[in-house]
Amino acid sequence: NQASVVANQLIPINTALTLVMMRSEVVTPVGIPADDIPRLVSMQVNRAVPLGTTLMPDMVKGYP
């Protein structure tokens, strides 16, 4: 099973992602692959992302 990117904390709308905000976890449904975490750094979320939420491609501005 492939690990996905999961919010490690509440991420407010328009926040630029940092490594501490994300963790990898095997979840269903599958979200953004954990391998993409380095690419996500400094990209902004377009909505508030609660703790434990799987990051989906449509939540991150400019992804992929």
Results as ranks from 00 to 15, higher is better:
T18E: 09
A7L: 03
L17G: 02
E25M: 07
Y63P: 05
M21F: 04
V6P: 01
M56A: 08
M43E: 04
L40K: 00
R39A: 12
Q44G: 04
V26N: 12
V5M: 01
M56G: 05
L10F: 11
P38M: 15
N14Q: 08
E25F: 05
I11R: 00
V60P: 02
V30I: 11
A48V: 13
R47H: 15
M21V: 03
V45F: 00
V20G: 10
Q2W: 12
L55Q: 01
I37Q: 04
V41A: 05
N14E: 10
D36A: 14
T54W: 02
Q2F: 13
P33Q: 07
T28G: 07
S42L: 14
V6L: 09
Q2E: 15
P33C: 15
M43W: 07
Q2G: 15
I13M: 09
L17R: 00
T28P: 02
G62L: 11
T54P: 09
I32V: 12
M56Q: 13
V26A: 12
I11K: 00
L17W: 00
M43C: 05
N8D: 12
V5Q: 01
L19Q: 11
N8F: 04
M56L: 12
A7K: 02
N8G: 10
Q9C: 05
I37W: 03
T53F: 08
I37D: 01
M43D: 03
I13T: 11
T54N: 01
M59E: 03
R47Y: 09
P33D: 11
I32K: 00
L40Q: 00
T18N: 05
G52N: 13
L40I: 08
L40V: 05
P50Q: 13
Q2M: 14
T54K: 03
G62M: 06
Q44E: 11
M22V: 13
Q9I: 06
D58R: 06
A3I: 07
M21H: 09
V20K: 13
S4T: 04
M59R: 02
P29K: 05
V20A: 08
V6N: 00
A48F: 12
V20Q: 11
V30K: 05
Y63I: 04
V5Y: 00
M21D: 04
L51K: 12
R23D: 07
P33T: 13
V49I: 12
L40Y: 03
T28L: 07
A7N: 01
A34M: 06
I32Q: 01
V5R: 02
L40W: 02
